[in-house]
Design a protein around this nucleic acid. Structure first.
Length: 657
RNA sequence: GCUGAUGUAGCUCAGUCGGUAGAGCACUUCCUUGGUAAGGAAGAGGUCAUCGGUUCAAGUCCGAUCAUCAGCUCCA
């Protein structure tokens, strides 16, 4: 086809608003954007043609529905940050010649690039690299795509670029691909499917955040690389907003708030990863435990208690010991007078104890389901670098239950466990919850117990229950536990990191290992199925995430101090004390502030300590026998009679709003 | 566990070239008795994470350990 013919042919381009425009064939994305508006052309980063993102410079040769991709969309951010990682690599190459590049993707909040370099990167280097990136942006370098055969690309990276990492990707990951694409920007070239932003000049603001190490291809037996993280924006203002968001997240950090509000502490004298609940934190935990106990009582759960340690044989039998011996505290070894040795494990999970309770009596099919429940404290020796306040600890308490049921009851029981978890999350205001069906990885059979048939059945049951409950889930291959698939409820913390809280797990393996049985209607022995479930997951982790979620502004029913009585002057102290007593009698956690400070000061301090209700008392209140209520973060709510206030607060507490 | 960073008063942080430790807030006492986010004054508060080394002299330089932070890896 000659150029001339191309010019003559017209194509119909459908825009997102449904309008159709005609363009000569060969029109590029940027030209379409320019025809719509100057601002859009300026913001345009890439083009989406029939749902597929492509470079802005790609000529359109057929009718298509298109969309101009800008930074506002998730695809736009992805492309922008991916391109930024290339620009960072170019900057690093210019500053530190000889550096080689591994993987450099965009991530949820920015990008990183894994670098192999003789130079050991330091904090100061990041500032230099940032400057260089902005300099490259000012050069307004065009980013150009080139397609070529895999062989030619291998040759290019072997000779011109001398980059063994890209060669390895081409020879292994891409071995069945014939044509690959390269992106050139001045002297720097990267292997990449793209698309990319048209020019380095789109990048206006850059912040390189940290340096860490990674393994080439995520394999701990391969070489270490230096991973540099960063984030970039098409304007300075957006970077500023991003930094402000980070600072806000820092203020919400449960480790910071936990110390400020006196909720919990960690001490090297006790041991790292072993949180200690302070009185105020213990109130929150206690309220949550009481709440769940009550819900479970309504749902037919039977509370039990089991010891904190167990004979190691128990865990060998369950299979936990061989599967997870590296993440357990070493066994306690005990020798009796005759030299006989016994070993005990700090319990890493509660299930084996519960299974023994099940099998301590003969069970009839009429008895099932049996739902044993316990707030069971477990100890796991997590790697030191993993520890993180309450959300990743070495000693923590699971709201653990094991439901023993007949196969015909299983899906119903999974559904009701999901229902309970949803109720708990709903009550605590977690709306942004992701649900993952955690399935096994068939390629890694050694990681799991049980037969293929059992796994197929269990995964089918889990999926059926999730579908019946109308859950919007995604599948996580390889995320199952060794004994069965799970439904995991995942919530983000203030910094956007994801944590698994609630979980519902199906288990056909333990009933075999512990030879659990019930007598069926046919008079024969049958195998029950076990469901492991924990709506909170771990009290520590849940409360850690809850602190960040609420920024320490707990709902009234959970607040460690629900109200503080603030007398304005000494002449009303006596009345204030009687108000405090009335609130105490009403079951409200209340304090009285009789310091000789001005009311403004008392209010400020109550606000900062996030007490939900301030009860302000002066002459006027004393004369009328009333109180003034001021709400945390809201302000004055007017006067109430003492009994009316108690009533109001009690109602709010019982409704858990 | 790995890579990097950090560790000074209860908290947030200064501390220059190595020369006997500083601020604000909080705390204690006194004055002040007030109306919805900081009244005033004075005082007390430190084995500079721990251990070792270099030096006439170490918060400061070097090493180890512990803890914390970010990420990696792992995660019942």
């Amino acid at each position: 086809m000659s150029d001339n013919q191309e010019q003559l042919a017209a194509i119909a381009v459908t825009l997102p608003d449904g309008s159709v425009r005609s363009f000569p064939s060969g029109t590029t994305g940027i030209e379409v954007a320019q025809s719509i508006g100057r601002k859009l052309a300026q913001d345009a980063l890439a083009l989406k043609v029939n749902g597929k993102t492509v470079d802005l410079g790609l000529p359109l040769s057929a009718d298509a529905s298109i969309e101009i991709v800008t930074f506002d969309s998730p695809e736009g951010k992805d492309i922008f940050w991916h391109s930024s990682s290339h620009i960072m690599a170019q900057a690093i190459e210019e500053l530190f010649p000889g550096s080689r590049f591994g993987a450099g993707p965009s991530i949820e909040q920015g990008f990183y690039y894994d670098v192999a370099s003789m130079h050991r990167f330091r904090e100061e280097d990041l500032r230099l690299i940032e400057q260089k990136m902005l300099e490259i942006s000012k050069r307004d370098t065009k980013i150009q795509r080139e397609e070529l055969s895999r062989e030619a690309a291998i040759e290019f990276f072997k000779t011109t670029r001398q980059d063994p990492y890209k060669v390895e990707i081409l020879e292994e990951t891409l071995k069945s691909v014939e044509t690959v694409s390269l992106y050139h920007q001045e002297g720097f070239t990267d292997l990449c499917t793209g698309p990319h932003i048209p020019s380095t000049s789109k990048l206006k603001a850059v912040l390189l955040t940290n340096i860490s190490s990674s393994y080439w291809r995520g394999d701990s037996s391969r070489e270490n690389m230096q991973r540099i993280y960063g984030i970039t924006f098409p304007s300075e203002k957006m970077l500023k907003e991003h930094v402000e968001r980070l600072e806000e997240a820092k203020r919400r950090d449960h480790r910071k708030l936990g110390a400020e509000l006196g909720l919990f502490m960690l001490s090297p004298e006790v041991g790292s990863g072993l949180p200690i609940w302070l009185p105020k934190g213990a109130i929150i935990r206690n309220e949550l435990e009481s709440f769940l106990k009550e819900e479970q009582r309504k749902r037919g759960y039977l509370p039990v208690y089991t010891p904190h340690i167990g004979n190691i044989e128990l865990y060998k039998r369950s299979g936990h010991y061989p599967y997870y011996s590296d993440s357990q505290f070493p066994p306690l070894t005990y020798h009796d007078e005759e030299g006989k040795q016994e070993q005990y494990l700090l319990k890493p999970m509660n299930c084996p104890h519960h299974h023994l309770i099940y099998s301590s009596a003969m069970r009839s099919y009429r008895d099932l389901p049996i739902r044993l429940t316990e707030f069971g404290t477990v100890y796991r020796h997590e790697q030191s670098g993993e520890l993180n306040g309450l959300v990743r600890a070495r000693g923590f308490t699971q709201d653990d239950s094991h439901i023993y049921c007949r196969p015909d009851q299983l899906v119903d029981e999974i559904c009701s466990a999901i229902g309970l978890t949803q109720f708990v999350f709903g009550t605590l205001g977690f709306s942004d919850v992701q649900t993952r069906l955690s399935m096994h990885d068939p390629a890694n059979q050694a990681k799991y117990g049980g037969t293929a048939e059992v796994w197929a059945q269990a995964e089918k049951d889990v999926k059926e229950a999730a579908d019946r409950m109308g859950i919007d889930y995604f599948i996580g291959i390889g995320e199952a536990s060794f004994y069965g698939p799970k439904i995991d409820f995942i919530v983000r913390d203030a910094l956007g990191r994801k944590w698994q809280l609630g979980t519902v797990q199906v288990d056909y393996v333990m009933p075999e290992r512990f030879d659990l049985t019930y007598i069926g209607s046919d008079g024969q022995k049958h195998r029950p199925v076990v469901i492991h479930r924990a709506p909170f997951g771990s009290m520590e982790r849940f409360i850690g995430v809850l602190i960040e979620h609420t920024a320490g502004n707990f709902p009234l029913w959970l607040a460690p101090v629900q109200a503080v009585v603030l007398p304005i002057a000494e002449d009303v102290h006596e009345y204030a004390a009687s108000v405090r007593q009335a609130l105490l009698d009403g079951g409200i956690r209340v304090e009285l502030d009789t310091r000789s400070e001005k009311i403004g000061r008392k209010i400020r301090e109550a606000e900062l300590s996030k007490v939900p209700c301030m009860i302000i008392i002066g002459q006027k209140e004393q004369e009328s026998g009333e109180v003034s209520l001021r709400r945390h973060r809201i302000g004055d709510e007017g006067r109430f009679s003492v009994s009316g206030l108690v009533e109001k607060l009690r109602k709010e507490i019982s409704e858990k709003t």
